[in-house]
């Protein structure tokens, strides 16, 4: 599966468009991480726990998008975009979407 965030796949012609595919995941942080983050809020600096959590969740959202694209018979996804929104206190939704295509 080739994933790009431009309109084309470099070096390959798009044969067929298969429409929008997307993947999402909603994650919350566990109490231990929140405690550490609370401490870090006094001293400042990077919240490594959160960075890891969000990176993992984003990979999962991308994986779900890829699964969906495979299910419709695509071999590439173009024009991928990410979006993050906080649904409720302590939980965030990570969303990835793009256009599933068949390239030669």
């Amino acid at each position: 599966m080739i994933v790009t965030n431009i309109e084309t796949v470099p070096g390959k012609a798009i044969v067929k468009h298969l429409g929008l595919v997307s993947g999402n995941t909603v994650r919350s942080k566990h109490a231990g991480r929140d405690l550490m983050a609370g401490l870090k809020n006094i001293f400042g600096g990077e919240l490594k726990g959160y960075t890891e959590l969000l990176t993992e969740s984003r990979q999962e959202a991308v994986q779900r998008m890829i699964d969906q694209a495979t299910a419709v018979g695509a071999n590439a996804i173009v024009n991928v975009r990410f979006s993050t929104s906080s649904v409720a206190a302590g939980a965030a939704e990570l969303y990835a979407y793009g256009t599933a295509v068949v390239v030669e």
Partner: peptide, 10 residues
Amino acid sequence: CGSVVVSVDF
């Protein structure tokens, strides 16, 4: 992709 979470200090 690359991402980072940075916290404000007090």
